[in-house]
Design a protein around this nucleic acid. Structure first.
Length: 647
RNA sequence: GCCUCAGUAGCUCAGCCCGGUAGAGCAUCUGAUUUGUAAUCAGACGGUCGGGGGUUCGACUCCCUCCUGGGGCUCCA
């Protein structure tokens, strides 16, 4: 039997040898391989080779390898849990980005129990049990898992009544699974249980409540360490921590959950973003309006929000002239702006923008700092155009988004085409032809722009498909940042028309909803975590912190402060009688772009000395030279602080 | 909303297991010091230990409940 192990390299083996033996023969014992591709299909090492084939070992550190390790680790978890809690019923346990989870039908577990389970897993790991694949008929599988109605349900759904399938056994534990898995439990060394939570069977809140246990798992010690370090680093960047240190925002329970108050420093960030966006969007041909935060029930019925989005809205308010709702979106009001007068094809595309707040009734448990709030400040706009104009408007919006991200120094993002879910039509406006038509349209636009994107079913808005721009946060969590949405439903719901070239009423008005800068809340949270609070100069709440060395320098310090202020630079002065070391320590927390130190030399020479956030310094810069340099840095929106050469 | 962990001074935290009604550092204020790049000294102020209820002679500590925050589920910007 001939086995190809690299392109065009072959070795002869007796039929009946396992893939693992072949891999060991070629690569040695401690290769770090966890499974193999046999003719391109993932298989266990224990697979018996019967005829000519090609073998490609899977490294534990590759994506496929980590997936297998994590999946096996989930089984290890289930084995430990069922040993410690014999009544626990394992349900499903897939690998995920940094590890795995497993859902059990059992009592919730706390931190101490988590530790106990983890220790049990380590014991089993050390026992070095072989993990054995078993083929079973449907009948015997049903007998094996008869006690566990969840497994039976999986069989009913996924495997069907007729065919057999496989299970994996390690010691006394056996789990329904198609594999592949690692060969021995000892290969699962670098894992750690991280948390437990509660999840519903089949993600359905009407079904059984399950206990989900999360863990992380890596191929190597370094992998696990790095992830632990990443989590620690992320905690340092947490916008909630930095937000408190820099006095960006506060949340007071007397005001309410999810309702942040922007403090002066945060307000500077927020308004800088707004100003930048206002200027940019003027150039792109947007016009601004302001609409009320409340509107009548009829409005939101017409827009489709009440039938499709009611749970996202605050409960109604009964007034003497009708029922009112806080707006969760601006679009219905903008549609009425469009309809306020007769529009001509010459008006299109019409771009209506608004900087305002909308209110969404997020479930209390999901609220988190500025990342998820109930009052959203956003740079929102709606573009009214013909289908032919959609492409160019999407194009210019994608370009705008890319420009924005460059200005804020963001690099880690990707595009997602969010599609409807034809299996779940009640969540969407049920017009399949329109969905297909518009989705294909967007797909073509993205293809022609040659931006890489993924497609995701079930992520669309209820009124149409969208292009989302996805970010990965410092902690590795994925969030939507920007969104550009195509709406094919508004035109009928609001009777949006224009007079076309032939003079007749044309009802083919498409609406593009777009929010390139997310919400101010989420955006500032991202910005804070991305820069760790060390914002580019143009965004820094404090651009220059003046520190005087002694009493003698107070007077000159004030002059410097006034000069900077006159030039529009955000400056603060500390001329208290603390030591200079202490003043530096105090002000580091506020992360000014620069600290300006003033002592005898500076007074004498009419200069300042600059200290950067990293501690680098440049002494005796003439004051006017500094003002010019920082002024350029601000107006260029430089993301690199360049006054002191990079250390 | 559900699960889980937590809530002690403005901030960071100790005390709680094993009940005898509170401690530290930083911040703040006052005074001294006048300082050249990440901790100058001294003093003062500051807490109904998240709220309510229970057990107890006695509760920060044990129990119940509610509130708030972190993590997760669900949803989403």
């Amino acid at each position: 039997m001939k086995v190809e192990f690299e392109d065009n390299q072959f070795r002869e083996y007796e039929a009946g040898i396992t893939a693992g033996d072949v891999v060991r023969d070629i690569h040695g014992r401690k290769s770090g391989f966890v499974a193999v591709f046999i003719d391109g299909i993932e298989k266990d090492m224990s697979t018996i080779l019967e005829s000519d084939c090609k073998i490609d070992p899977i490294d534990g550190e590759s994506d496929a390898g980590l997936f297998i390790l994590r999946h096996s680790c989930a089984h290890l978890l289930a084995q430990a849990v069922t040993q410690l809690y014999p009544d626990a019923k394992p349900t499903i346990g897939p690998p995920i980005e940094h590890g795995f989870y497993y859902d059990f039908f059992m009592q919730p577990v706390g931190d101490e129990e988590l530790k106990k389970i983890e220790n049990k897993m380590k014991e089993i790991m050390k026992e070095n049990l072989p993990i054995i694949r078993e083929e079973h008929s449907n009948i015997s599988l049903r007998k094996m898992f008869g006690e566990n109605k969840f497994k039976i349900e999986i069989m009913d759904d996924k495997i069907g009544q007729e065919v057999g399938s496989t299970a994996y056994r390690q010691g006394e534990f056996v789990d329904l699974c198609i594999g592949p898995h690692v060969e021995f439990t000892s290969q699962l060394r670098w894992f750690k249980l991280t948390s437990s939570s509660q999840a519903y069977w089949r993600a359905d809140s009407k079904r059984e409540s399950l206990t989900r246990i999360y863990g992380m798992c890596y191929a190597t010690k370094e992998g696990l360490r790095n992830r632990e370090k990443q989590i620690q680093e992320a905690a340092k960047r947490d916008h909630k921590k930095i937000g408190r240190e820099m006095e960006l925002y506060m949340i007071d329970e007397m005001i309410g959950k999810g309702l942040p108050v922007w403090l002066p420093n945060g307000e500077i960030l927020k308004s800088s973003i707004e100003e930048f966006a206002l200027k940019t969007e003027e150039e792109y041909g947007y016009q601004r309006v302001t609409t009320p935060v409340l509107g009548k029930k009829q409005l939101f019925e017409a827009s489709g929000h009440l039938p499709h989005y009611a749970e996202g809205m605050y409960p109604p308010m009964e007034m003497d002239d009708g029922t009112y709702y806080l707006k969760a979106m601006n679009c219905p009001m903008h549609h009425l702006v469009y309809r306020n007068k007769k529009r001509s094809y010459r008006d299109l595309p019409l771009r209506i923008a608004e900087y305002g707040t909308v209110y969404r009734n997020e479930m209390s448990g999901t609220l988190a700092g500025l990342l998820r709030v109930r009052m959203l400040s956003m740079n929102d706009a709606h573009i009214y155009c013909t289908l032919d104009q959609v492409a160019q408007e999407f194009e210019s919006n994608i370009k705008m988004v890319q420009d924005y991200y460059a200005a804020f120094g963001f690099e880690n993002y990707y595009f997602r085409l969010s599609l409807w879910d034809p299996e779940n039509t009640e969540k969407y406006i049920d017009q399949p032809e329109n969905w297909e038509k518009t989705q294909n349209h967007l797909r073509k636009i993205l293809d022609s722009l040659e931006v890489p994107y993924i497609e995701s079913i079930g992520e669309a808005a209820f009124y149409g498909p969208k292009v989302d721009i996805q970010f990965t946060t410092a902690i590795g969590r994925e969030e939507s940042m920007s969104t550009i949405q195509l709406d094919f439903a508004a035109k009928e719901r609001f009777g949006l028309t224009y007079t076309d070239e032939t003079g007749s009423d044309n009802g083919e008005v498409f609406v593009i909803h777009r929010a390139p800068l997310s919400t101010h809340e989420r955006f500032v949270a991202f910005l804070t975590e991305h820069w760790s609070g060390n914002f580019p100069t143009w965004l820094s709440p404090i651009q220059v912190q003046i520190i005087t060395i002694s009493e003698k320098h107070k007077e000159y310090g004030k002059i410097v402060s006034e000069e900077l202020q006159k030039s529009g630079i955000r400056v603060k002065i500390d001329d208290s009688d603390n030591t200079i070391g202490k003043k530096i320590r105090i002000h580091r927390k506020m992360r000014p772009a620069y600290m300006a130190i003033i002592g005898d030399d500076e007074v004498k020479n009419n200069t300042i000395s600059i200290r950067t956030r990293k501690g680098a310094q440049k002494n005796d810069i003439p004051l006017d030279e500094f003002i010019q340099a920082i002024g350029r840095e601000i107006s260029n929106r430089d993301t690199i602080l360049g006054i002191v050469p990079v250390e």
